[in-house]
Structure formats: structure tokens, C-alpha cells
Design a binder for these strands. Structure first.
Length: 126
DNA sequence: CGTGTGACTGACC
DNA sequence: AGGTCAGCCACAC
């Protein structure tokens, strides 16, 4: 599998993360059908994503619920802001994974198989 | 073509 | 709660 192909799958999965929720790099790797070891590649893929794609890259944090971008970089501040904008409590670059972790299977349980759920519809009020 | 470097993870201490 | 370590792999030099 080419790296380019992997990127495409990664972007595809990352785009599915509902507003107000987050996923870990490993989680995206798994959803994209990639080995767990590919976790590191996720960050690279997200960074390489075209801006016009409007990918919710900021909804991806590491397995500990921490923002993996080093503090001090503009991206770090931006990620915090965007997450809080969706009602996620970010404290010192860290959030509660138990609370905000996206669970695709639970998602399906609630909305039903094949049911499309538009997160943006409820992202505004809080 | 060899080496170093991360937007990582799980395991251990 | 923190710190370390090995495994991984695309990419830049």
C-alpha cells in the first residue's frame, strides 16, 4: 500500500469525527485499516492535508488525550481554540478522553446503521 | 543510500 | 501522577 493511498484513507476517516468529539492517532489508524504502528503516520498525513479540504485535524489527539503538537507552535494554540469552540474542555493542552472519545460503534447504535449524522447541526449551541 | 526525527503507542517502572 | 524504552515508518538531509 502506497503512502499516498494511506493518506487518503486517513483523511477519509478523520473527516468522520463528529464535532465535539475526538479520536486518537491510533484510533484513526485502526479505522483506516492501518496497523497500530502507523499511528505516527497519522500526524504526518494530517499535516500534509490540503487546507481546502477543511479536515478536522484538530479533533485528533494522542492516546493520553493530550495535544501532540509541541507547545509554542501556532498550531498548538489553534488546536486548543478550535476544540474549545466545539465545547471541549481543554486544560493545559489536555482533555478527558473518557468524556470526549469518539466511539463509532456507539454512534451507529444511536443513529442507526447507514444513518448520516451531521454533527454541525448541534455544534453551535453551548 | 545511511541517519536522524517526529502531530505515536503500549509496556514497564 | 510522571519518566523511560523499544518498535515503527515516511520524510528530510
Amino acid at each position: 500500500m502506497s503512502a499516498n493511498e494511506s493518506y487518503r484513507k486517513i483523511w477519509q476517516q478523520a473527516a468522520l469525527i463528529p464535532a465535539g468529539q475526538v479520536a486518537s492517532y491510533g484510533q484513526i489508524a485502526k479505522l483506516a485499516g492501518l496497523p497500530r504502528r502507523a499511528a505516527r503516520m497519522i500526524g504526518r498525513a494530517l499535516g500534509a492535508a490540503p487546507v481546502e479540504m477543511q479536515l478536522p485535524w484538530y479533533r485528533v489527539v494522542n492516546a493520553q488525550g493530550k495535544i501532540s503538537i509541541p507547545k509554542g507552535r501556532p498550531r498548538f494554540v489553534q488546536q486548543c481554540a478550535l476544540l474549545e469552540q466545539e465545547g471541549i474542555e481543554v486544560r493545559d493542552g489536555q482533555l478527558d478522553m473518557d468524556k470526549y472519545r469518539w466511539d463509532p460503534s456507539l454512534d451507529e447504535l444511536i443513529w442507526g446503521p447507514g444513518m448520516l449524522h451531521d454533527p454541525s447541526a448541534e455544534a453551535g449551541d453551548n
